[in-house]
């Protein structure tokens, strides 16, 4: 078993802390995040009210009237030393995307910037399953990754004020799916009818960090 990365425990205000595995997105950090989030859930840590996996860190909200930062840090170091190295139970999803055209106005520019035609880009994009890295930024907004090194582009310089729910976004080695209207600086490459967010649902979102997703092109 390879050595797991040793995280830093960083206070975030007086009622939260981050267990940070890296400053950069990478497969090792994202795997460690998902595995540790599940470990922390199982550990029933005293005073902890919320555990949220991020791209490179796990957020823990806690009640400072029940446990101090120092006390919780000690509990976490123990949990880190005993952590599992897998994501536990995960599910697999297939999500259909309409690429390009009005649904994905940046598709051709993205393919060109990566030195390929749009058909090749779509084939590469959908070629291997991605993992749900985290939910964040907006309700039901999921980050999926990571794409291969030669499939990575930075964000656009300009921000679009509003993209519709179901927009399929591409940047920084990831594909993201929106569930609500948001502003974004990511490339918009397509659109899906899949909705990850239902305010009346229990839970209100379907995809969980660690789940696997494969994208399919719709005609």
């Amino acid at each position: 078993m390879p050595d797991l990365p040793i995280p830093r425990i960083v206070p975030l205000g007086d009622s939260a802390l981050l267990v940070r595995f890296s400053d950069r997105i990478g497969d090792e950090a994202t795997s460690a995040v998902v595995a540790f989030a599940r470990t922390a859930e199982d550990a029933r840590l005293p005073g902890v009210t919320e555990i949220v996996p991020n791209l490179v860190s796990v957020l823990l909200l806690y009640d400072p009237t029940r446990i101090t930062f120092t006390g919780l840090s000690a509990e976490l170091r123990l949990a880190i030393s005993r952590r599992r190295d897998d994501a536990g139970e995960t599910r697999s999803y297939s999500i259909a995307i309409r690429f390009g055209g009005a649904d994905g106005p940046d598709l051709d520019a993205v393919a060109e910037a990566l030195g390929m035609d749009s058909h090749t880009f779509i084939a590469r994009h959908n070629g291997a399953p991605l993992r749900i890295l985290a939910t964040g930024f907006a309700p039901g907004f999921v980050y999926c990754g990571l794409h291969a090194e030669d499939m990575r582009l930075p964000r656009r310089n300009a921000v679009r004020d509003r993209v519709p729910p179901g927009s399929v976004l591409f940047a920084a080695g990831q594909t993201a799916i929106t569930s609500t209207p948001i502003p974004t600086g990511w490339h918009v490459i397509g659109r899906t009818d899949f909705s990850n967010f239902d305010p009346a649902g229990t839970p209100p979102t379907l995809l969980r960090a660690g789940d696997s997703v494969i994208f399919e092109a719709m005609a």
Binding site: S15, R24, L55
Partner: peptide, 27 residues
């Protein structure tokens, strides 16, 4: 890399503007 925000966080935009984030913050 995007990371969790809590209410009260003071973020600095690219142009140097500080913003104190309140309870409807982006997560």
């Amino acid at each position: 890399v995007s990371d969790s925000i809590v209410p009260g966080d003071i973020q600095i935009l690219g142009d140097g503007t500080p913003i104190v984030l309140l309870r409807d913050h982006q997560p």
